[in-house]
Design a protein around this nucleic acid. Structure first.
Lengths: 251, 251
DNA sequence: CCAATTGCTATCACAATGTGATAAATGGAG
DNA sequence: CTCCATTTATCACATTGTGATAGCAATTGG
């Protein structure tokens, strides 16, 4: 099923490594890092150059081609993600019979990039709106996938307003909740943001295992049975994976 | 000298066409536009997808991969251009014994992205600073390469302050000056911005003939002989071409 | 609801490109 | 000048890409 990597993929892997290292290219280090012989690396560099993806700065330094960058100026990750996810979310909303959301983490807050309303199940959120992360289902999922340092920084940043009776506000308690979330693979908001709002959320990964965002199912009433929740989680995860594959590889 | 296009180049050409058309892909139209059979186009689409450059939205719509876009967020065309051009400009400054500039057009104003000072030839400009376009050498060059509509819009936008005795402020006169500039291939500022500032500028093209910006040679005194000016122009054009090739193909 | 159109995938024999090892040339730093 | 890292060049070989065709899938219009 894993199609053999074309030269394209390998060259793009090099490109990714380059931008990740701010343009610095050390042939031998890069060779072991990517598992590609040096001679091939230089051929890829030239391919990237003549394709207009990179330009040569000084020795050992290759930067993204500004002309190429300019072409992409009109596209923002937000807008694209939003467009990609929306139709998928709408299907999910119909299937689950709940309102669904797609959100990402931004400045320690959850930003909703897409929302699909289930009729009669109106929710106060709105697209492009922001929400606290520590108490929402999507937020918990995204926080739970931070690095240890990032999470530590978040936990100590505070304060964590008590939005409802159920809101977890104690930093240590939040940390435990995030740990639970990470372990079981999904986040739960049991009326912690709003009295009549219950959500579950699962992460959306890139093909390389980075977390892009999370999708949630929101209801104004608590789920009836454990079985029903399990069912929702399965569907959520299926959709999450479907988004992953829509996004494609290389990330 | 023109190296045979690798699959990479062709796929990137498709990518370029896609972003230029806001993601819309019509196989037959694209086939004639790029001169590539449809079956190959779809193979390229899949290559771009699995390389993480594009993601599929709905039928016939392919958008830049948001994960890919996010990787490039740290790089701006300005910063990269500036870094690329600066060392080249410094060489030129030494060779010409004048201060040199690299500027682009932005909101009808010239923005200097790089400046190389020749000792003793201080100039009031500064990097990232803005200057009126209609009277500066770089500005004239960039304006002269606008489309007819763009130039018309600029000419009628006004007003054009009279910065020195020599500043051309009459719209019709400016238009003629731009036409002259376009025809002869270089721009002249004969003390029109500042009393003691004389510049000549030439355009910097991409390999596909689009204008990226312009480079200029500035002096506090008018050039002695026509021969000297001709010599400067030759060097300027050489450097402009060198920048072009540094930028690479595909644009 | 069925036809027609368009998007998209699969398969083939063949040609073109990419591949990796090696060697040599270039350029910068001390 | 000398060293070291970057970069180009060259080779025989194998992997990939190529384009034509056929077929499948999904959307559109009546």
């Amino acid at each position: 099923m894993t199609r053999s990597m074309s030269s394209f993929d390998k060259a793009m892997a090099l490109f990714g490594a380059l931008v990740a290292q701010d343009g610095v290219f050390e042939s031998d280090a890069m060779s072991v890092q990517l598992g590609v012989p040096e001679s091939t690396l230089y051929r890829h560099l030239n391919a990237l150059h003549s394709a207009g993806l990179i330009c040569r700065s000084k020795r050992g330094r290759y930067l993204p081609n500004p002309v190429f960058l300019k072409k992409l100026e009109g596209f923002t990750p937000h807008a694209v993600l939003s467009e990609i996810v929306r139709p998928i979310l709408e299907q999910l909303s119909v299937a689950l019979e709940t309102t669904t959301h797609f959100g990402i983490l931004e400045n320690d807050m959850v930003t909703y990039l897409a929302k699909a309303v289930f009729e009669g199940e109106e929710v106060f959120t709105r697209e492009k709106g922001q929400l606290e992360a520590y108490c929402s289902a999507i937020g918990k999922v995204l926080l739970s996938h931070m690095t240890v340092d990032e999470r530590q920084a978040y936990i100590t940043s505070g304060p964590f307003p008590k939005l409802t009776d159920k809101t977890i506000t104690d930093p240590a308690e939040i940390e435990r909740e995030l740990h639970r979330t990470r372990i079981r693979g999904f986040g739960v908001d049991d009326g912690e943001v709003h009295n009549a709002l219950y959500c579950i959320a699962v992460p959306v990964f890139t093909s390389r295992g980075m977390v892009v965002g999370a999708i949630s199912s929101s209801s104004s009433q608590r789920w009836a049975s454990p079985k029903e929740q399990r069912d929702r989680l399965i569907q959520l995860n299926g959709v999450a994976q479907s988004i992953s594959s829509t996004l494609g590889a290389g990330a």
